[in-house]
Simulated scan of single mutants.
Amino acid sequence: MTPPPARLPDSASLQAVLAGLDPASVDADLVPALAAAFRGFDFSLAQVDDEYWRDARSVIRSDGTRVGELRPWMMAELAKDGGDIRALWTRLKETDLQITEWRGNSAFVFAPTGTGVADYIQIALGREIEWRAGPVVNPDYRPWGEEELLDPSWPRHEGLPDTDRLAGPIYRLLDRAGGAFVHVRSFLDRCGRIERDKREAKRPELERRVIREVGPDGTRETPFLQAVPDWFDFVPRELRFFRDWEASSARSQLVFAHWALDVRDYTHKGEREVGFIPRPLKIPRERLQMTPETSVHQLMDRIEAIDRELALPFGWFFLMTHGHWVEPDVGLAIADGLKAQRVRLPDPDAAVLLRWSERTYGF
């Protein structure tokens, strides 16, 4: 009997799996729990070192007894003192009340759904721990406004001892901009469709637009679409990233073994915003920057070293599109070297780089 098709995860079922994990063994249990809930998927987990703080603080006593959430509790306490911040501070600094904070790091779960480079799902999570962070008010400094009480800056931001751990670790869906769960190929299709729709909506306006140039023979007018005939053929950078991966030496490896995607999909002022910023899971020891004295042959040595560090052929190129670890000028210099036949790359990689150099993109 043919097994039923695998059921794609959804937000509610993912949250149910996460809620059922024991903090004591959450890291070991996450992938098996997902595999049990969504049979047919081969899940893998990648964690990112990018500490963040949640805007969710609580108030506790020194013995750990929970008093309430910081903001509503603090506003009620301020009301008791008739809005007098000095009186509130004087009263609270003599108590044993403390603030808790949730601190986390991003984590991503992946699972392939096919053989294509974009045939996989991604789940964006936060791995979070609640800590005892500091006194409810700064005993050495009187706050001057409500916001200093509600959004305190005095809690410690350095590493905390394990004795100050209150809860967690837990895993939580990170739905910061509508991108907690994506099927990547479907998402790319959505990116392309929305971009086409946006451009098509401007067709009547662009058909009327002209470019005026003033020269010695007078003013010449050129229809915009005649001057820019490929305006409607624009390919979003998100699609180009995956197409370049598929067309290059990198195609021998899985995208999600090397990159996570910070996905956004939301509507702002009636305009649909959809796309992603790629985040490298592996980074080189040093940035590759272009300097006047750097030769193209030195650049070739450096990009080969980066590829070895990443264990990814042509990996330097995708770091370059990200923009931080390899400067775009490096790619342009190597493209010029290819055109002058001073250096060589494998034919697929050379074609991708030369195409990029004609119309660059980056994140």
Rank of each mutant, 00 (worst) to 15 (best):
1 M>Q: 12
252 S>M: 13
348 P>Q: 02
24 A>N: 11
305 A>E: 12
323 G>R: 04
33 A>H: 07
66 R>I: 05
329 D>Q: 12
39 R>C: 11
161 P>H: 11
27 D>L: 11
165 R>N: 04
238 E>S: 08
60 I>P: 01
320 M>T: 01
46 A>P: 00
268 H>R: 15
312 L>T: 06
270 G>K: 09
280 P>W: 06
236 P>W: 08
343 V>G: 09
329 D>W: 00
1 M>A: 14
45 L>A: 07
341 Q>M: 07
140 D>G: 13
221 E>A: 11
352 V>Y: 06
267 T>Q: 12
81 D>E: 15
113 T>M: 10
168 G>E: 05
288 L>G: 00
120 Y>V: 07
87 A>L: 00
21 L>M: 10
317 F>D: 00
175 D>P: 01
62 S>W: 09
181 F>M: 15
110 F>K: 10
27 D>S: 11
63 D>H: 06
273 E>N: 14
294 T>R: 14
150 L>M: 09
73 W>T: 15
260 A>I: 01
228 V>M: 09
77 E>K: 15
16 A>M: 03
283 I>F: 07
167 A>P: 00
136 V>W: 04
17 V>R: 10
266 Y>S: 08
89 W>S: 05
128 E>H: 01
234 F>V: 07
129 I>W: 13
246 E>V: 00
244 D>T: 01
254 L>C: 08
71 R>V: 12
2 T>V: 09
121 I>M: 04
237 R>A: 10
146 E>Y: 03
220 R>E: 13
324 H>K: 03
95 T>F: 06
362 G>P: 00
312 L>C: 04
15 Q>R: 15
10 D>C: 12
108 F>S: 12
285 R>T: 02
152 P>V: 12
96 D>H: 05
289 Q>N: 06
10 D>L: 06
90 T>I: 01
344 R>G: 05
166 L>I: 15
55 D>L: 12
120 Y>N: 02
46 A>I: 01
224 F>G: 03
179 G>W: 01
104 G>D: 07
305 A>P: 02
102 W>H: 14
291 T>D: 04
160 L>H: 11
314 F>V: 13
153 S>A: 14
21 L>I: 01
184 V>R: 09
273 E>C: 11
360 T>I: 12
318 F>S: 08
210 V>S: 08
262 D>G: 03
